[in-house]
Design a protein around this nucleic acid. Structure first.
Lengths: 167, 167
DNA sequence: CAGTATCCTGTCCGATACTG
DNA sequence: CAGTATCGGACAGGATACTG
């Protein structure tokens, strides 16, 4: 990890982890989605050391997930807002939320996704956009894409359970 | 993180991160979904030090994501297979995959989700199971659930953009 | 208020050697 | 093959003090 390339960097999952692999990064994004934008809002919310917060915030800006925006000039003040790339991260967050609720909340969920109008609790499911089918196995699986290099292609031809899941 | 509680541990996202917060954990799960089960398969695939692999594998077993299963007795041999809890993690992985493909694959995707039968490339979208509506803002938002404690409840009443997203 | 500058610690991780 | 045992390095993260 860190800068050492990390397995096969062609893998989109590994690439994603390059940007949000640290704990705080994801929690900061969670709070950004919640509407927090200012340094000290994050700090209070997360109870994180200021230097660490600054470091993670900078990393997120460099990765293009957050954008620094000056909201005051007299005393120069910056706020951090989600970019499109950052906003696109929400499904990951909500998938994580759904998984956590299902498996690590014996007392019931403390945070849920709801319909803003009706207030009805939503149950997040991953589906294929065009067909609407739930993305479950064995109906769906991962496969090499058009830009797959040799290394990735091999994984799908030489390994024991190519396409099948471990049972 | 580590054992220091980590912000608000009632948050399902934080709880999830407790189990899969480390880089290798997620990559190991990715490979487990791919069908790998044996120690040295993971090691070769990930190019990870054996002691680290053992550590992460044990953590995953302790968290109930993987299950150790003896597949040979003469020489005792264990393999690691996904539990139900582990299999439920797939949406997170695929959301991560979709996000990586969209934002960090200028040359096009190297790995995609496909329909096993037709081979058609699927586009993962998070929707509400009962209504089928895409889980996007501002139609949907997070809200305190039935088991929300005081601290969580406060976040949704006292902060600037309760329910709204940063624009 | 929004950070920066230091110093320190924990531990994640890498490399290597060894074993049933 | 499936790990365990050690040693060391890098860095995330914590605590604290300071500044425009």
């Amino acid at each position: 990890m860190q800068r050492k390339s990390f397995g096969n960097m062609q893998c989109p999952i590994a690439r994603s982890l390059e940007r949000v692999g640290e704990w705080w990064s994801i929690l900061i994004l969670r709070d950004a989605f919640y509407g927090l934008t200012r340094f000290d809002q994050f700090q209070k919310s997360l109870d994180i050391a200021p230097n660490i917060l600054a470091r993670r915030l900078n990393a997120l800006v460099e990765s293009g997930l957050l954008e620094r925006r000056q909201y005051s000039e007299k005393p120069p003040r910056d706020e951090y807002v989600l970019t499109q790339r950052g906003r696109d991260f929400r499904p990951v967050l909500w998938a994580l939320l759904a998984w956590g609720n299902k498996h690590f909340a014996p007392e019931g969920p403390s945070v849920v996704v709801v319909n803003s109008d009706s207030g009805a609790v939503a149950e997040p499911v991953l589906v294929d956009r065009s067909t609407g089918q739930p993305l479950a196995e064995p109906q769906f699986r991962v496969a090499p894409g058009p830009a797959a290099g040799e290394r990735i292609r091999q994984r799908f031809t030489t390994t024991p359970a190519a396409g099948e899941n471990a049972r």
